[in-house]
Design a protein around this nucleic acid. Sequence first.
DNA 1: ACCTGAACACCGTTCAAGT
DNA 2: ACCTGAACACCGTTCAAGT
Lengths: 240, 240
Amino acid sequence: MPAQTEPRIPLSRDRVLLAAVKIADDHGIGALTMRRLAEEVGAEAMSLYYHVAKKDDVLDGVTEVIATEIVDAAGRIAVPADGSDWKADGSDWKKAVRERILAARGVFLQHKWAAGVFGTRTTTSPAVLRYYDGLIGLMRAGGFSHDLTHHAMHALGSRALGFTQELFTPPDGPVTEESLAAIAQMADVYPHLTGMLSEVAHDDPESTLGWCDDQSEFEFGLDLILDGLDRLRAEGWQAH
Amino acid sequence: MPAQTEPRIPLSRDRVLLAAVKIADDHGIGALTMRRLAEEVGAEAMSLYYHVAKKDDVLDGVTEVIATEIVDAAGRIAVPADGSDWKADGSDWKKAVRERILAARGVFLQHKWAAGVFGTRTTTSPAVLRYYDGLIGLMRAGGFSHDLTHHAMHALGSRALGFTQELFTPPDGPVTEESLAAIAQMADVYPHLTGMLSEVAHDDPESTLGWCDDQSEFEFGLDLILDGLDRLRAEGWQAH
DNA sequence: ACCTGAACACCGTTCAAGT
DNA sequence: ACCTGAACACCGTTCAAGT
């Protein structure tokens, strides 16, 4: 028997990208460095550069990986995509689009770092384009003009992919006596904000979800937009 | 005459933060390093740490600077905030909120790097809270319940501050024969997307704005949301 | 063709030392 | 109280060298 080295799985772009996703999932996007990534695949940092151009290329790659997960998840939604047997009033498009967007959101909930990375990419990944292509197809089948569909995509923005940039974030954790008191103390500086929060908390005192239920709020905003779009479609909206 | 050193403006947190904004404005957020920042204020990098805790503190600080600009811009909008002389149908709230949001958007257009930084902050800046407080006050004056106002803030998301995460970005630059041909070539992979884009381009062939007019699209999405909220308010929407 | 060691030019940050 | 020089532990990336 000749001297034999460990039968190592050869490096590949795919293996590098999947390892990158794993690192971000397990330790956050901050832990994703070229050296840490090399360690994960059992190689030296410099070996990575044979399979990816630079770190930016890794980030484009993980975006594509996540986007592919989204396309797959959306594709699994059993709603007819061609609209052939839809109700005559065209209302089915909304359910089809809504369920695909919520499926996309499910993917981002499993990769919490991913929304931030998507925001930094300058080129749009092919898988993201395929996902948007599917949404556009559903809206067209539902009776939308190309022009209104175009506006719709912009109106939805990142919400079409299942996430939003939340800048209005009441304190984490459950509603407690202490946090309520802390809010009340700011009443002179932010009278309307504190008024709103204390009433919202009062309405649902035994809430275990904390101040805001992210899922409900996402669906509220999504439905608001989809309902508005449906109304424009039904009214025969024209460009102006 | 005794030997005299140059009368240097003493360092201060404010001076550091304003210099940071200037660097990001002039050279992008990537150019904002502690060493570069020190150079800008005419000191050594380590001197900064007497005035800011760490780089994260600098980013919190510039967020506060930009947010203060937004509050100021919104405050300059001459719309009665207390609703005392508003139309009985309450429709004035929408104009007041809309104009403030567009004023906020104007600030982000002057600091293109800022939206990205806002997205990375974990704590909400006091100035952002003041801005939201103002919006909430306007909606309350317009007849919104606390509960619907709360949902409204979540529905608007970052759009309330004047920016959106655009993931659907058709090619930059003007619509040319070449770019149209490039789009047509992808028709087999993205049939709905290419169909939409070629028709949108065809409808406005001499557009100098390129594929999409960002300002119009922002206003379309904003109005869609505001109109939907106004409808819910008029219908006496209740939590469910 | 694939992988690596040594090295370069950067980072943010600590710490002891200066005035 | 305010500022600094030297140093540390990291980055991403290049390049010549190995198999």
